[in-house]
Nucleic acid binder design. Structure first.
Lengths: 257, 257
DNA sequence: CGTTGTGTTGAGCCGAATCAACCCCGGTGG
DNA sequence: CCACCGGGGTTGATTCGGCTCAACACAACG
């Protein structure tokens, strides 16, 4: 069910995607034109809909322009783990292996709007758009970094730390694509989704959020999150966030002779 | 500190690497010869030594022939999370992005022996060895799959499930490269390493292992693990292991109009 | 022979899960 | 207009899995 009425082309916002590509080094106008070229090939998905699944779709590269999706795995007994959230500006299905038996699927968490990334991907792979290719690679690397951050959260952080660190990550990702500022950003997730992402129970997510509010670190109002004290959040979140790559004053590796 | 004395070439075992490459589709002899060609360019590392780090080494592709390493991130306060174990037959540093600010490093858990993978990698990237290239891609995809398995373990499984599932994974990976059989395999890890991988405390890993022993599911003796009842382990581990890709009878996605 | 690292065990505590209400709010339909 | 309903958020009571602290056993090693 695509577009209902013919819009002026200028009214098809793609902004998040362009911002993200530029942020990752693809700034040449002719290459970005390749992306824009497919901007009117839109897809709309309702919440709960599967965008990239276990079953079908060999590869269907897409850019997300609006709405949130999640890459998740469901366990047979009903439990599920959200592996990562996919925000406006993110791409999905770029890697050839995408969802080939890897046991995960991408599901829309809110209403989601995407458009075709096939032409851009082909140009990148054929060598016609090296800038795009580099940006895609950089974005993939960043994705893996986020995945690892998430693993550390799950394995080695308390609920309080997890939520703090996770909110900081969202703020950074969203600001990069022009949604929200250095403190405020849209957060359309239910506490259940947060719980499934952070490896906690719904109830405990609730209590942890309240604790953060009581500590005057955050504020949540109708789908908008406000980080009242980012430095303090950084402090409690326990380790350097993904973006800042520090040389690690770290614990010297034990080097037994 | 390379080789101490000139060996007969035939005595340089590379078996795990070749087995793994073949298992992932690289079976052409001329291509495998490229791998073998560098088999005498060996590197030895003591336990605790950093093989691929945060600081140095732009890219240094290696095959592991013997010993176990781990890809890990250390938190400033001493906690650490092991992201994945690197076993004989595995490669490291194949991806160009390897360890570029991603905040992880690869550390030897036991004595480790590796050899140069540069020629093989170059042949794969230049298009001279498409079979190798395909195998590398498949191996990377499998690695990501294992990473995701690990995330689900950390986020959504109990200690008992985690350990069971993890032991099954190790058994499969090791049997693939010819170490151990369908029940028995070498397990040179301390309980502390297990704890840091599984997101548990040392003490609790200990108790969980004992529980598994009491339940007659496993046996551990001097660096060797024995899975007494793999089917039962599979059952308790709660979800399909990475290797078997099932269509998922799964929970139908909620599709609100 | 002490030392060090690893495994084992107990006691007690605490973070987080579970169970169970209840509230609020936006539909929706009588 | 109101009664009903369902989804999401909030709260309390209680349970429990896993952590911490602490001690001890054992083997490898210098």
């Amino acid at each position: 069910m695509p577009n209902r009425f013919k819009p002026r082309l200028a009214a098809w916002p793609i902004d998040p995607v362009l911002r993200r590509l530029r942020a990752f080094g693809a700034s040449l106008e002719p290459e970005l034109a390749l992306v824009r070229a497919a901007a009117d090939r839109r897809f709309r998905h309702g919440p709960g809909e599967e965008l990239l699944g276990l079953g079908a779709s060999p590869r269907r590269p897409r850019f997300v322009v609006a709405g949130w999706a999640a890459c998740q795995r469901a366990l047979p007994d009903g439990r599920r783990q959200i592996l990562r959230f996919i925000l406006p500006g993110d791409a999905m299905g770029l890697a050839p292996k995408s969802a080939r038996g890897a046991g995960w699927s991408i599901v829309a968490m809110t209403a989601v709007e995407t458009f075709d990334a096939e032409p851009a991907l082909e140009a990148a792979e054929s060598g016609a758009a090296p800038g795009l290719a580099a940006a895609f690679a950089a974005m993939a690397a960043k994705d893996e970094e986020l995945l690892i951050d998430h693993m550390v959260r799950l394995g080695r952080q308390t609920a309080y730390e997890r939520v703090a660190h996770f909110l900081l990550e969202l703020q950074r990702r969203l600001q990069l694509v022009g949604l929200g500022d250095s403190q405020r950003f849209p957060l359309p997730l239910t506490q259940e989704m947060l719980a499934d992402a952070l490896g906690l129970s719904i109830v405990h997510v609730n209590r942890t959020l309240q604790q953060l509010r009581r500590d005057r670190l955050i504020e949540l109002r109708s789908g908008v999150a406000i980080l009242l004290d980012p430095p303090a959040l950084n402090r409690v979140s326990g380790y350097a966030a993904a973006s800042s790559f520090r040389p690690a004053s770290a614990t010297a590796a034990p080097q037994p002779a």
